[in-house]
Structure formats: C-alpha cells, structure tokens
Simulated scan of single mutants.
Amino acid sequence: MLSRTADHLFWMARYTERAENTARMLDVNYQTSLLPQSSEATEQGWRGLLSISELTHDYHRLHDSLNPHDVMEFMVCDESNPSSIHSCLRAARENARAVRGTLTTEVWETANTTWLEFKRLIANGSFRRDPADFFEWVKFRSHLSRGVTLGTMLQDESFHFLRIGTFLERADNTARLLDVKFHGAQSEFFGVREQREPVEVDFYYWSAILRSVSGFEVYRKVYRNVIRPEKVAELLILRPDMPRSLAACMDEVVGNLKMVANEQSGETLRRAGRLRADLSFGRIDEILATGLHAFLTQFLDRVGDLGIGISRDFLVPV
C-alpha cells in the first residue's frame, strides 16, 4: 500500500474518533455543570476540558474570559481550532475523499453525509438549542462510521490502518480525560466526608465521567457496588474487556500493527507490545501508589512516541 493512502486512512479514523471524544468530553462537562456547585468549580471543569486538548492558550487568544458558551462554541464550531468538532469532521471527510477508491461506497457516504449534516445542524441552530442532543448525534455518527467499516470493508491493510488510527486516538483521549477529571476531583467540592463516605455529588460526578465513556452500565455490571474513584480508574485503565479502556485500545493497536508489519516497523511494534504488557500485568494499587498523574503522563508520552513511530514506518513523513 502507498504510504500516502495509509496516511489518509489513518488520519480519517483519528479525526472521526477525535470528534466523538470531543463530543463526549463536552457532554460530560455540560452535564456536570448542571449540578449544584460553586462558580469556581464550574469554571474549573471548563478549564480542565481545554487542558485535556492542550487548547488553553488558543482559547484565551480569542476570548478574554472563560465561560461555558464560549468554550462550547470554540470546541464545536471554531474553524481555527484544529481539535474542534467542525475541524475534525471536515478533516475526516477530506481524508476519506482522498482515498475514496479504497473505501466502500457505504463508508464514503457515511463520512460525507456526516459532514454535510453537521453543517446543517450548526446553521439551523440545533447545537445551541440542545447541546446534549447534538453531542449524542456526533457520537452516533462515529458509531455508524465504525459499524459500516466493520460491516462492509475487506479486512486488508486499509482496514487495519483505520483501526490503528481509531484506537491510538481513543487511548490518547481516555488517558487525557482520566488525568484531568481525577485532578479535578481533588478539589474541595468533590471531596469526601471525614468518615470517607462519598458525598452525594461525588456519585453524579463519577457517574458522569463513566457515562462520557459509555461505562456507567459496564461499571455496575463489573463491580456491583457504589462508584469508587479507584475502581473507575481500574475500569478505564486495566480492564481489557472495557471497549474504551487503555488496555483494550492497546490490544487493538498491537493486533492491527502486527497485520501491517514491515521490515522497518519492528521497533514500533516492540514499543507497542511493551506498553500493552505493562497494562496487561499492571495493578491499580501499584499505579495509584506511584501516582496516577505520573502514570498517565508517561502513558501519553509513550502513545505520542508510537504515533511518531507509525508515521515514520508506514505513513507520509511529517
């Protein structure tokens, strides 16, 4: 396969997944902002969202103050923001158009229709009238894209590069979400009582985070207990049967990398395998003892390094 074709497929999948994850993060912030809380706690949540995407500087270059309306506009509609849903869906569609002959008709039409319908929803004000419904639409279109890919595409190299892009992006976003939200939970508002019994708002905070990764029902099924932060971390980091966990993502990345391996990809595959092994044999108590922030920061660095390695070995050099 030509490296340029692989590059378009890889980034088409990454941008589609990034749009979904941006919608998920906006949705959880929007939902938690409706809880009774101080203005400082609300602002911290929106500041954290910008921090997840490393867009704080870009936002403040355009806006003097931090408020939910401006943040959502910036993360959804702003064409100058490369991580906005607008930019991601447009980039996904353009990458799909560049390799239209490699994709099935259904995959191309899904990407194209998503972009056209997105522009219509923004133009008619649907996003501003009901943000939660709009975010659900973005997630649904991403689900549809993956389903059509699985259901119609030949599982050749094209398919594997799409999968690598999807799960590398998902791993990155899950780690960022965990890092920022666990840091936010250390504030006084999201603390616990002296008896270490969760305050009522803790339940809504952690359940909102779980819902943002479609993990609320999964958590209830796996743990059958009250929502505890350490169990949330375990579910989203180490459980290979949780679709959006770091472990599950790395399983997919390694499996698909093996299917497209070439003479120069040995080191990238080794690093991916080592990262997967660390997750497969890790324990949440050890991770928490050494520091969750340090663990997630290192994970993000290693995922970024994998992305560079994949670009070097398979894609158009950056």
Rank of each mutant, 00 (worst) to 15 (best):
A233T: 05
R128V: 09
L238W: 01
N95L: 02
G45F: 02
R274Q: 10
R196M: 13
P229R: 09
L66P: 03
T268W: 03
A96F: 04
D313W: 04
G184C: 02
E54K: 07
F314D: 07
D7H: 14
T149L: 11
C249Y: 03
E20C: 01
V316G: 05
R276V: 03
S212V: 06
K231L: 15
M250P: 09
L66N: 06
D202W: 14
D278K: 01
D179V: 06
S39D: 10
R141W: 02
L292M: 07
V222P: 08
S51E: 12
D78V: 00
D7E: 09
R120Y: 06
D301S: 15
S126H: 01
R90K: 13
I164T: 12
R193K: 13
Q37H: 15
I85D: 11
A247L: 00
R18I: 04
R129W: 05
W115N: 15
S51I: 06
I122Q: 13
Y15K: 02
H63P: 02
L177W: 03
L162Y: 00
R271V: 05
Q264P: 00
A175H: 02
E188S: 11
E263L: 08
F216A: 09
D251T: 10
I287D: 04
Y204M: 08
P317S: 15
L55M: 15
V99T: 12
A23T: 11
R24N: 12
A294E: 11
L269M: 08
V148E: 03
H183M: 12
T32Q: 01
Q37P: 08
P131F: 02
T110A: 15
L2E: 13
L306Y: 03
R129C: 14
T149V: 13
V148I: 14
F190A: 06
V107M: 05
H8V: 02
S158C: 13
S83I: 03
N81T: 07
T114L: 04
Y219W: 09
R211A: 07
I237F: 04
H57I: 07
T56S: 13
Y30F: 14
A123C: 12
S53D: 04
A261E: 12
T149D: 05
L103F: 09
L103H: 03
M250Q: 13
E54A: 14
S311G: 09
L154Y: 10
R90W: 01
S83D: 08
F140S: 08
K258V: 08
N67H: 10
L246Q: 00
F299R: 09
E263F: 03
F182P: 00
V260G: 10
Q264S: 14
G48E: 04
T102Q: 10
V148T: 06
D285G: 05
A208R: 03
R312K: 07
R128F: 09
R220M: 12
V28I: 14
S38K: 06
V253Q: 07
N112T: 03
F140R: 12
K231R: 15
Y59R: 13
R47C: 05
F134L: 08
S83F: 04
G255H: 06
G291M: 03
A208W: 00
F167I: 12
P229N: 10
N225G: 09
N173L: 03
L62N: 08
S126K: 02
S245V: 04
A171M: 08
G101M: 01
